[in-house]
Computed example of a mutant assay.
Amino acid sequence: MAKPSDKTLVIIPTYNELENLPLITSRVRVAAPEVEILIVDDNSPDGTGQAADKLAAEDANLHVLHREGKGGLCGAYVAGFRWGLERGYTVLCEMDADGSHAPEQLHLLLEQVDAGADLVIGSRYVPGGEVVNWPKNRWILSKGGNLYISMALGAGLSDMTAGYRAFRREVLEAVDLDQLSNAGYIFQVDMAWRVVQAGFDVREVPITFTEREIGESKLDGSFVKDSLLEVTKWGVAHRSQQARALFDETVRLGRRSVENFRKKHLI
């Protein structure tokens, strides 16, 4: 019997990942030889795009999408999603190029999709998840930020900033990709939040996140302020909507009670 994961595309955005690219693609090939890979390169000045083309020439299941400039991670994933949806993939995955997302754990995400999940997040902060080679202050910042996001939105997820994900195509077709926020890395939270609000089955599986060994992180400190400010706005709006819905329902029930009373007593 066919499974959703039988036609899986792993999307790997790149910008100056010349050394990491052959390492991550070879690991995916060994760990999950049945999946296809899409490299989305943002015109890397170090030649990553050209290296990706060479890999694609040797591997029919490895594809390359070149973008004109450094358009950011959100834009790269959206471009990759659209590329994959147009070509009929049933599961589309996000994976970092730097090795922080272990291809050897991809099966954990795909198994949950095949078991009925619509979105599976590889989580650092559920039991069994861990982070390797992070300084303590960065772990506290990430863990604390995710706790705040969880409380602000009430989504019931432990790691909404995580970038190791597997989506059923139906989820990506239902979300307006043009409306995703690209403030810092907040689009990961935005996407997960939209999926939860739409009523899809969202699950987390524990993964080991390992800090990159080669190259420099694309993350800077501004993402924390930008992201948490954005989340605060969403949380306030969500609570306001909940309060309004509760008020409207109370009014509706009150009117019904009055009408029933009048009918009963022929007022």
Rank of each mutant, 00 (worst) to 15 (best):
I149T: 03
Q242A: 05
L172A: 07
E249D: 13
A192Y: 04
F247K: 10
A245K: 13
P13R: 00
H101R: 08
A174G: 08
N260Y: 14
N146S: 10
D42M: 08
Q50C: 02
A166V: 09
T8G: 04
N133A: 13
T232R: 14
F187Y: 15
K70W: 15
R165I: 13
A198W: 03
L147A: 08
A102G: 01
N146K: 09
E170Q: 04
L172K: 10
T208S: 13
R244M: 13
W234S: 05
L266E: 15
V35H: 09
S222H: 13
K263I: 11
A51V: 00
G154S: 03
P103L: 04
A79Y: 07
L9N: 01
E173W: 05
G154E: 07
D226S: 02
G163K: 05
R29L: 09
P127H: 00
V10C: 04
K70R: 14
G84N: 02
L219Q: 13
K233H: 09
W234N: 06
D190I: 01
D176I: 05
S26D: 11
D176W: 02
A56S: 15
A97W: 02
T250M: 07
V224S: 08
V224P: 04
R168S: 08
L62K: 00
Q242E: 12
I267G: 05
L62Q: 01
H238T: 04
V40T: 02
Q197K: 07
S217G: 00
G129Y: 08
V231S: 06
S257E: 15
V78Y: 10
A192D: 09
L21N: 02
W234L: 14
A76P: 10
K7L: 13
A97Y: 09
I140R: 14
E216Q: 08
S142R: 12
V189N: 05
Q179H: 07
N182K: 05
N146P: 11
L229H: 12
D176R: 03
E216W: 14
L23A: 11
E170W: 01
G99P: 00
G215K: 14
A245W: 11
M160V: 09
V120F: 11
L266T: 10
L157I: 09
K7C: 08
R67F: 13
F209T: 13
L106K: 01
R169A: 15
L177Q: 00
N137L: 12
I267P: 01
G254R: 01
T48C: 07
G88I: 12
I140Y: 10
V231Q: 10
L9D: 03
H107C: 09
E213K: 12
I214A: 04
A115H: 09
A51M: 00
M191H: 08
L108C: 02
N146D: 15
A31M: 09
I149Q: 01
R252S: 11
V10I: 14
Q179Y: 03
C74Q: 02
S181E: 01
S222W: 12
N61H: 11
R212D: 03
F200W: 10
D6V: 06
L23R: 14
S227M: 15
L106I: 04
G75K: 03
L38S: 10
G99F: 02
K225I: 14
E230L: 14
R262V: 12
